[in-house]
Nucleic acid binder design. Structure first.
Length: 482
RNA sequence: GGCCCCAUCGUCUAACGGUUAGGACGGCACCCUCUCACGGUGCAGAUCCGGGUUCGAUUCCCGGUGGGGUCACCA
């Protein structure tokens, strides 16, 4: 059975790259009836941010990415874990890593290293100056056993390093095909830090094996450390998973997507009012395409079409404009009720139900992100200040505009109340009025719209009248005349 | 710099040796229209370069060039 896993660090936010990886993990697992795991990689205590695990769990849930194993939130919002291979939080598994590191030590596949960060730094500087690859010089590998024992018993801080074997590492990446490295160029990676925590490299291999992960999907930044992981799999005698290194998501300048150049946090997009479905749809298509001309996909369609071997190799620029367009598409596809429900969290003051419903009906096709609506509310809820110079249509005069407005106000005041029941009826009646009086459409509608909205650009006068109602509408028109 | 990866319109991508190199976002023009938005139509816009292989290369191979990633007791 296929088993995938997403393994984020609890650093306070979810990177969009993590979302895409999680999505691909999910798509691959679901496509083949497999399972997905959420594992928290919190082996760096310095980077841990309180509450971020819960946040990660919530973001995955709102994006519709469900996993079978890992930390979850119960009904009261408390963190629990589910699955047969837990715990799924690495800081709760440290004993496991220590045991495995010791095992490597005994077999001569790893060794203690007492070198100080300062010395390591010096070594690197020297190597850089001599234009040599920067890697540990293996000083501690030559230490006599007795020395090691003594220093350890004296309580000296030490790390455990992988003794990188000779030879070459070849593996078949599901996306890139065969990749080869010369082991001589690979560093003796620290596996267990002096604080007793494992590094990513040890923990990821141990956990993926113990949790029976079959497909390791991760970003391309991990490609060059894969030989270390392969060495570990071989030393432990474990079966290797399929590796799939995803192309990077890029900034406009084609460097790895970073905070400096825009939002990288999924939470930021959600908070601005990008719909999770839109974000998922967009991110799914960064580096992969189901072939064909379709742009909008449901999750089920993505699952059905997903194919790891069709993921692109080249990095993909995160195009905010296309995301924004896609979000607008999703907003327009929503029902009014659904849209209102999603809009409410973004409103600081919420108009009464019927008014809000009408506003949303009119604004729906104009919204690109949910957070925009709040700024458009005053047009409907506050009497606008009218700039008289704006009232005149094209080459028409202010006087003429006022004449037209007075007449329209009279018409609106005296017409059948029924016409206010729909935008279409209002439009029909007002246009009939214009025709009957042989007026110029623009000469009436422009001043009318400006009088209603106070803005050069706004929804149509018919839409505005429908939202505002007869009373408020007439009041605004009369107000513009005086 | 060493190693590794990558390379089709500005951007996301399609074309598993033979297509007028297709679609989408963005841009521009036009239509709809009182304005905005929506919608519709159209236009501009790409195979990094050089060698091979082949009757024929976007596609396969090699070499350049360019870009990126990585070289931590961070992931």
């Amino acid at each position: 059975m296929i088993k995938t896993r997403i393994a984020p660090s609890p650093t306070g936010f979810m990177h969009v790259g993590t979302l895409r990886t999680a999505l691909y993990d999910y798509l691959l697992a679901k496509k083949h009836g497999g399972n997905m795991i959420l594992r928290i990689e919190d082996t760096d205590q310095k980077r841990f941010v309180e509450g971020s695990m819960e946040q990660l769990i919530r973001v995955l849930a709102t994006c519709g990415i469900a996993y079978e194993e890992g930390p979850v939130l119960d009904q009261d919002g408390n963190l629990t874990q589910q699955g047969a291979h837990g715990p799924y939080i690495q800081s709760q598994r440290t004993e496991l890593y220590r045991t495995r590191a010791k095992q490597l030590l005994e077999k001569g596949n790893a060794y203690y290293c007492f070198c100080s960060p300062d010395r390591l730094e010096e070594v690197r500087k020297r190597q850089t100056a001599m234009k040599q690859p920067t890697k540990y010089d293996r000083t501690c590998l030559l230490l006599p056993k007795e020395d090691v024992e003594r220093r350890l018993s004296e309580g000296e801080k030490a790390v455990i390093r992988l003794k990188m074997p000779d030879g070459i590492s070849i593996f078949d990446d599901a996306i890139r095909g065969s990749v080869t490295f010369n082991n001589a160029e690979i560093d003796d990676q620290v596996l267990l830090k002096s604080d007793g925590f494992p590094t990513y490299h040890l923990a990821v291999v141990v956990d993926d094996h113990l949790m029976e992960v079959t497909h390791v999907i991760r970003g391309e930044e991990w490609l060059s450390s894969t030989p270390k992981h392969i060495a570990l799999y071989k030393m432990f005698g474990w079966e290797m998973p399929v590796f799939a290194h995803l192309p990077l998501i890029l900034n406009k300048d084609r460097s790895k997507l970073s905070k400096r150049q825009g939002d990288v946090a999924v939470e930021n997009y959600l908070n601005k009012g990008f719909l999770p479905e839109a974000l998922v749809n967009f991110v799914a298509l960064l580096g992969w395409n189901p072939r064909g001309d379709q742009e909008i996909y449901t999750m089920q369609e993505l699952i059905d079409a997903f194919d790891l071997s069709k993921v692109n190799k080249g990095g993909a620029v995160f195009d905010l404009e296309k995301l924004t367009w896609m979000n607008g598409e999703y907003i327009r596809a929503l029902s009014i009720d659904d849209l209102i429900a999603r809009l409410k969290p973004f409103l600081t003051d919420t108009p009464k139900d019927e008014l809000l419903r009408r506003i949303v009906t009119v604004e729906k096709e104009r919204l690109t992100v949910l957070a925009e609506l709040q700024g458009r509310l005053p047009m409907y809820t506050q009497t606008p200040a009218i700039d008289p110079t704006m009232l005149a249509w094209k080459k028409s005069t202010l006087e003429d505009a006022k004449v037209q407005l007075s007449a329209v106000a009279d018409f609106l005041m005296n017409c059948d109340e029924q016409i206010f029941s729909s935008i279409e009826n209002i439009e029909k009646s007002v246009k009939e009025y214009i025709t009957e009086k042989s007026l110029q459409t623009g000469a009436v509608l422009w001043p009318l719209r400006v009088a209603l909205s106070g803005a050069a650009q706004s929804p149509s006068p018919f839409e505005l009248l429908w939202v505002l109602g007869r009373e408020e509408g007439v009041k605004r028109v009369q107000g513009a005349v005086h």
